[in-house]
């Protein structure tokens, strides 16, 4: 019993990060119709940059975090300006391959810059754990995950629902041309979307590598987050915020109870299996909009 609770809490903490990363590319998808397959690589690139700032350059933690977020924002701006510009209106295959090729390119760069060893990320939170009622053991970093992602999502929700630019983003994602016709600067909205997306990626990168270590393979978190987004329904932000933790929990439980049956590795597989099943039965995801197509 204790074990199950522990797995659930750990899964919850991990799943929150999936939600955080997923929000990033769902925003991009909603506003410009582009699914960014490079998101996971951007997450890990930010983690590497954070590593360089703290360990290699010795910048104090708080400033390094801010610098990494700033780097994420800059990256988003550059990608929007130089790549996205050409992508709108291109066939889907070209978009997919461009983002994937860009992701491979970034991986090559990271391989050059930081090598292929697993780097240990700087310690963000003190080690140790607390035990509640002798049932649940929580280590500090998991608690911090939960709290931080929770706060980030709240901040994001406020930004998205209460500010003018959030309103402009919503309008743009509904109907780009109509948004332009009421005086919204659509290109500027795209830039902001990419910047936010890359900042969430940076935050996700800093958090996730804190437990997993920094390695190019961690980029697969992007694919897992994408599975979360597709299961939740690509257009639905609440759906993603719900599905992320759920997916995390299922992942940890299956790792605990199914792994002995198939000698390991279920953790990385379960999201994809769930995705395949959901896509067959509910093609637009659990909370997604039905897409009506006319000839």
């Amino acid at each position: 019993m204790e074990n199950i609770l522990n797995y659930i809490i750990a899964g919850l903490a991990n799943g929150c990060i999936y939600s955080l990363v997923a929000i990033g590319f769902v925003l991009i998808y909603k506003s410009s119709g582009i699914l960014n397959f490079a998101q996971g690589t951007i997450v890990i690139l930010n983690a590497f940059v954070f590593y360089s700032f703290t360990i290699q350059l010795g910048i104090p933690m708080v400033i390094a975090i801010l610098l990494t977020l700033a780097f994420g924002a800059l990256l988003g701006f550059v990608i929007e300006r130089f790549i996205l510009d050409r992508l709108i209106g291109q066939p889907i295959l070209a978009v997919i391959i461009l983002t994937l090729a860009f992701s491979e390119f970034l991986k090559g760069i990271m391989n050059l810059g930081w090598g292929t060893d697993i780097l240990s990320a700087p310690q963000l939170f003190p080690r140790g754990n607390i035990t509640i009622l002798n049932i649940v053991t929580l280590d500090y970093s998991r608690i911090a995950f939960l709290v931080i992602t929770f706060f980030l999502i709240i901040i994001f929700a406020i930004f998205y629902n209460k500010t003018k630019i959030g309103l402009a983003m919503k309008a743009t994602s509904d109907d780009t041309i109509a948004a332009g016709s009421v005086g919204i600067r659509v290109r500027r909205v795209f830039v902001v979307t990419w910047i936010i997306s890359c900042i969430t990626a940076a935050a996700g990168g800093i958090l996730v590598t804190n437990v997993m270590g920094i390695h190019i393979q961690v980029a697969e978190i992007g694919f897992k987050a994408m599975a979360v987004a597709l299961v939740g329904g690509l257009q639905s932000l609440p759906g993603i915020i719900i599905i992320g933790p759920a997916m995390g929990i299922i992942e940890f439980l299956s790792a605990a109870y199914l792994d002995p049956l198939v000698d390991g590795g279920m953790r990385d597989l379960v999201p994809f299996i769930i995705l395949l099943i959901v896509l067959i039965f509910r093609p637009s995801g659990i909370f997604g909009w039905k897409h009506i197509e006319r000839i």
């Binding site: 309103l167 919503k170 309008a171 509904d174 109907d175 041309i177 109509a178 948004a179 016709s181």
Partner: peptide, 12 residues
């Protein structure tokens, strides 16, 4: 420009 076909933002 009030476009043809009532281009409202449906989800807002």
């Amino acid at each position: 420009h009030v476009m043809e076909g009532r281009r409202i933002f449906e989800h807002l």
